[in-house]
Simulated scan of single mutants.
Amino acid sequence: MAYQITSECISCNLCQSVCPTGAIKMDGDRPWIDPELCTNCVGTIHTVPQCKAGCPTSNGCVKVPSDYWEKWFNTYYPLVAKLTKKQDYWETWFNFYSQRFSDQLQKRQHQVA
């Protein structure tokens, strides 16, 4: 199975109605994908998995990486992106406050002189 339904699912049941193989089952009020029936829409008239294409949340049905390294990089890249943004944040913060400190020093030098 290459797709699974995540916690972002809003239980609209749209995926269940568009699945050509009937692989999406209900477990109480939460849908799940039966791996025995799911074909990822391969061999049907659809070019993309219909559970993913029809999901109104865009993340209610996601592809599960099958390869160890694919899964590792899918975790790694978002973490690096967060770190990069934080570095930009701290650099901006430093530049802003160092400029303010410099301005205050200049004011005091003019007041003393």
Score class of each variant (00 low, 15 high):
residue 1 M to F: 07
residue 1 M to A: 08
residue 2 A to V: 05
residue 2 A to N: 11
residue 4 Q to R: 15
residue 4 Q to S: 08
residue 5 I to T: 02
residue 6 T to F: 07
residue 6 T to S: 13
residue 8 E to S: 14
residue 8 E to M: 09
residue 11 S to W: 13
residue 12 C to E: 07
residue 13 N to Y: 08
residue 13 N to M: 14
residue 15 C to M: 06
residue 15 C to K: 04
residue 15 C to W: 02
residue 16 Q to I: 14
residue 17 S to T: 14
residue 18 V to I: 04
residue 19 C to D: 02
residue 21 T to G: 02
residue 21 T to Q: 15
residue 21 T to K: 12
residue 23 A to N: 03
residue 23 A to D: 02
residue 24 I to D: 00
residue 25 K to P: 00
residue 29 D to K: 14
residue 29 D to G: 02
residue 31 P to V: 00
residue 31 P to H: 06
residue 34 D to A: 01
residue 34 D to W: 04
residue 35 P to R: 05
residue 37 L to K: 13
residue 38 C to F: 04
residue 38 C to Y: 02
residue 40 N to Y: 03
residue 41 C to T: 08
residue 43 G to C: 10
residue 43 G to L: 09
residue 45 I to T: 12
residue 46 H to L: 03
residue 46 H to I: 00
residue 47 T to M: 10
residue 48 V to L: 05
residue 48 V to P: 00
residue 50 Q to I: 08
residue 50 Q to W: 02
residue 51 C to M: 10
residue 51 C to Q: 06
residue 53 A to N: 07
residue 55 C to I: 03
residue 55 C to Y: 08
residue 56 P to M: 09
residue 57 T to A: 00
residue 58 S to Q: 11
residue 59 N to Q: 10
residue 61 C to L: 04
residue 62 V to F: 05
residue 63 K to Y: 14
residue 64 V to C: 03
residue 68 Y to T: 14
residue 68 Y to I: 15
residue 68 Y to E: 12
residue 69 W to S: 05
residue 69 W to Y: 14
residue 70 E to H: 10
residue 71 K to C: 06
residue 71 K to E: 15
residue 71 K to H: 13
residue 71 K to G: 12
residue 73 F to E: 15
residue 73 F to H: 15
residue 74 N to P: 01
residue 74 N to I: 08
residue 74 N to Y: 13
residue 76 Y to D: 04
residue 77 Y to P: 02
residue 77 Y to M: 14
residue 78 P to H: 03
residue 78 P to L: 04
residue 79 L to G: 06
residue 79 L to W: 03
residue 80 V to D: 00
residue 80 V to Y: 01
residue 81 A to L: 12
residue 82 K to R: 12
residue 82 K to H: 09
residue 82 K to N: 05
residue 83 L to T: 02
residue 83 L to G: 11
residue 85 K to R: 13
residue 86 K to A: 11
residue 87 Q to G: 10
residue 88 D to C: 04
residue 88 D to T: 07
residue 89 Y to T: 09
residue 89 Y to E: 15
residue 89 Y to P: 07
residue 90 W to D: 03
residue 91 E to R: 10
residue 93 W to N: 09
residue 94 F to E: 09
residue 94 F to S: 07
residue 98 S to G: 01
residue 98 S to R: 11
residue 98 S to I: 06
residue 98 S to P: 01
residue 99 Q to K: 14
residue 101 F to W: 12
residue 101 F to Y: 15
residue 101 F to A: 10
residue 101 F to L: 11
residue 104 Q to P: 00
residue 104 Q to Y: 05
residue 105 L to K: 14
residue 106 Q to M: 02
residue 106 Q to S: 04
residue 107 K to V: 10
residue 109 Q to V: 06
residue 110 H to R: 14
residue 110 H to W: 03
residue 111 Q to W: 11
residue 113 A to F: 07
